[in-house]
Design a protein around this nucleic acid. Structure first.
Lengths: 110, 110
DNA sequence: CCGGATCCTCTGGGATACTG
DNA sequence: CAGTATCCCAGAGGATCCGG
């Protein structure tokens, strides 16, 4: 029983879910619009296909995003925010503002 | 030059800073009150001294918290939020709400 | 076009023991 | 009381190749 405090606390829960290296960025991209796999890949030019696919699956399993596959040739898959993902928007907004503050701080620090 | 997009983006920046496993929780605790090392340790019963010390140093280096040491015997060290840490409070609030939503979601899921 | 399957690497987190 | 010093390990991230 090491779940006495965990799983109940919103902060540890959030930390776990958001721990993926690209989670925030993907959530942001999808908050702007539904995107296909290829579009995401282009937007995130620094990660490989495999990594992106893994991240997306993780986020789907966690209920953050929705994957919609069209059964056709050539394949087409669209990713969008789930209900939980939409609820995350306020966090994203606050985070963006703070991130920018932090970048300012970094500049002033040098 | 792989920093073309990184270091400029508020999301990746935030992701990097917040990636520590206990960062959010510590920020929350310190948002309630300034705390001594021992108090934090008791509040976070699941992490060892070494891990806590490392986390705190990291967060201090990142400019999130302030460490104030009193030169006395027995030693006394107090941790509090820095200016940047205080600016993080809105995120924390939004995150708490979302975390609770997520916990509800998990329950309903079973 | 959108992945799955493997393998490999690296580092954050933790256990344990010691100290001013 | 508030740490430091070591050592260790799982697991996330990534590279590469293959497939429907």
């Amino acid at each position: 029983m090491k779940k006495d405090l965990f799983g109940i606390c919103p902060y540890t829960t959030a930390q776990k879910i958001l721990s993926g290296k690209w989670t925030l960025l993907i959530l942001y991209l999808l908050s702007c619009q539904t995107m296909r796999f290829n579009e995401l890949q282009r937007a995130l030019a620094h990660m490989t296909q495999a990594t992106l696919a893994k991240q997306l699956h993780l986020m789907e399993d966690n209920g953050l995003i929705i994957r919609k596959a069209y059964n056709q040739i050539p394949p087409k898959v669209e990713y969008s925010l789930s209900e939980l993902g939409l609820k995350f928007l306020p966090v994203l907004t606050a985070l963006e503002s703070w991130g920018n503050d932090y970048i300012e701080y970094l500049k002033a620090r040098e």
